[in-house]
Amino acid sequence: MSICTKYNKYFQVGQIKAGFCSFVANFNQLFFACYLGVGSQVQGGIILNLGDLKPIELLQLQANATAELKRREIVRTNNNPLGDYAEWLVANMMGLKLAENSKAGYDAISDAGVTFQIKARRVTPENPSRQLSAIRNYAEKDFDWLIAVIFNKDFNVINAYLVPHEAIGDYYPHRNHVNARVVVMSGAILQDKRVMEITEKFES
């Protein structure tokens, strides 16, 4: 039995049965929002602790959530959704066009032809590191700007920065053991006048 079948029960709202039940994973809890079959007004809901679910049910939930994000064209792969979500968010908030998945070196491009590589990091109380994923082939200058987005544990943007390509080379040397440059969005680079904080673009 799938998690959808197990928990897609009818909920009584007065004498009316609530029809459609949608769910969204939110780390420690799963919120079921129940809607009347005849409309879209929220009539009631329950909160389910993820700790009550079996391992297979958690995997089913993750797979279904990823499939829904792909259907909405928010993520483009079945990998960790943070990177895809950050690319989608940046493109929508900054009016950029996403590159094809197979395009190496940059993730988005402006109407003027300016190219951007987009990196994201989710910080948590357990792991506050602001280290981004490796930037490879830096010397080939495939992108003009790096957009670094820092999320909190709930996927809210807490900082976003626009970093010129040349600034990366000034602060982060090539690391032979990873064959790349590893950017950490803290310390001296944030004081560089060439680096612009653009967090306000992501504020709702």
Rank of each mutant, 00 (worst) to 15 (best):
N64K: 09
V90M: 10
I56M: 03
Q60L: 01
S102E: 06
E68R: 02
L48P: 00
F32L: 11
D52F: 09
V38M: 05
A99Q: 14
S40Y: 08
K103Y: 12
L53H: 06
N78W: 05
L58A: 07
A67T: 13
W88A: 15
N49M: 10
L61G: 10
A104S: 14
V42S: 11
L59Y: 06
I56H: 13
D52V: 01
T66D: 05
V38T: 14
A63W: 02
A91G: 11
L50H: 02
I74M: 09
G45F: 10
V42A: 11
G39A: 06
E73K: 15
T66H: 07
D107T: 06
Y85H: 11
E68M: 10
R72G: 00
Q43T: 12
I46V: 07
I46D: 12
G83Y: 12
K54N: 11
A91I: 13
G51I: 07
L36N: 07
I47K: 14
K103P: 02
G105E: 00
V75A: 05
L59T: 02
K97T: 13
G83F: 13
N92T: 03
L89D: 03
L30S: 05
L53E: 01
D52C: 05
A104R: 15
N92R: 15
V42Q: 14
T66S: 14
K103D: 04
C34A: 12
L82G: 02
N79S: 15
L82A: 11
Q41H: 13
E87I: 07
E100C: 04
Y106N: 15
P81I: 13
K54F: 14
L82I: 01
P81D: 12
M94Q: 09
L30P: 04
Q41K: 12
E73T: 15
R71F: 12
L48C: 01
E73N: 14
E73W: 08
N92V: 04
V75D: 01
G45I: 09
T66W: 08
A104Y: 12
A33L: 01
A91W: 08
M94L: 15
I56S: 11
L53P: 03
G51P: 01
L50A: 07
I46E: 04
R72Q: 04
R76E: 11
L96H: 08
D107V: 02
L53K: 00
E68A: 14
R76Y: 12
N80D: 01
N92H: 14
A91Y: 10
G39V: 00
G83L: 05
